[in-house]
């Protein structure tokens, strides 16, 4: 049989795209292990920048702040998002379509607009900049992702199971705890991971809402890049991208958000 040309070209194209997507990240990671402070070649292996990064209190404080903010955001967004998903799934009511549509703006409107609007509003109500403002903003951005992921899991849930449990005398809490939540647990895990990633990787909203000198990791990196960066930034960036890719890898295993059948 003649080997068709198009599939071969197609695979080559796909390979090129993957190179395009991953090469810069690989280069950055490689340069974080290069001894030269000016990114000079030839390459000589060194962990110097990781050591300097670990000894830089600014980077470590920002990293800890980013992680704790992301954890708080994950807890709140997963709890509120799961409750809303179950309600949207369980009941039919007027205005349900509108409520589902309202999840769209936080995702679709550019973060520059949302972020500046939050800044203005939080100042107007006296909250101002700072970690509480950042958390409030991140939760709002993460909520739609949690609701979408948990709802996707719920769509395969047999609602009659709840009725069956109730008919056998189980109360509302028992039904939720023993029937519904165990079923949607994988969706909740995926939603929680999405929420963590949304917060941990969020730059734009954090940039407008965080107090100068009190910033999250991405904001610190942005400031450093604009001031003229050092390979320390490569080191912390390499760690961030590894962490966030690992989280998303696990999240897609738990959800069907990636689109696999």
């Amino acid at each position: 049989m003649r080997r068709p040309l198009l599939p071969v070209l197609g695979r080559l194209w796909l390979a090129l795209i993957l190179v395009f997507l991953y090469a810069p990240i690989m280069v950055m990671a490689a340069m974080s292990f290069n001894a030269s402070p000016f990114y000079q070649l030839p390459f000589s292996f060194s962990t110097r920048w990781y050591a300097e990064m670990a000894g830089n209190p600014q980077i470590i404080t920002a990293a800890l702040r980013s992680v704790s903010i992301a954890l708080v955001v994950t807890l709140i967004a997963t709890a509120l998002g799961t409750a809303a998903s179950i309600a949207l799934f369980r009941y039919d009511f007027r205005g349900k379509k509108v409520l589902q549509l309202l999840l769209f703006p936080p995702i679709a409107i550019p973060w520059l607009i949302t972020g500046t609007a939050m800044l203005i509003f939080f100042f107007a109500i006296g909250l101002g900049r700072g970690t509480p403002a950042v958390i409030i903003g991140h939760v709002a951005l993460a909520l739609p992702y949690v609701i979408v992921t948990v709802t996707a899991r719920l769509s395969s849930f047999d609602i009659t199971l709840e009725e069956a449990a109730r008919s056998m005398g189980a109360g509302g809490w028992t039904v939720l705890r023993r029937v519904t939540l165990p079923w949607i647990a994988p969706g909740m895990v995926a939603g929680a991971l999405f929420a963590f990633a949304v917060s941990f990787d969020q730059f734009v909203v954090s940039y407008f809402l965080s107090q100068p000198g009190d910033s999250t990791l991405p904001v610190l990196i942005y400031t450093a890049i604009r001031k003229g960066f050092t390979p320390e930034i490569n080191a912390i960036s390499t760690i961030i991208i590894t962490v966030s890719m690992a989280i998303m890898f696990i999240a897609t295993r738990y959800s069907r958000f990636g689109g696999e059948r």
């Binding site: 810069p24 280069v27 960066f229 960036s237 890719m245 998303m248 999240a251």
Partner: peptide, 14 residues
């Protein structure tokens, strides 16, 4: 799904 700022930064190095 990974950090967009870091990916832009990696292009600055390239």
């Amino acid at each position: 799904w990974s950090n967009s700022l870091v990916r832009i930064f990696s292009w600055a190095i390239v």
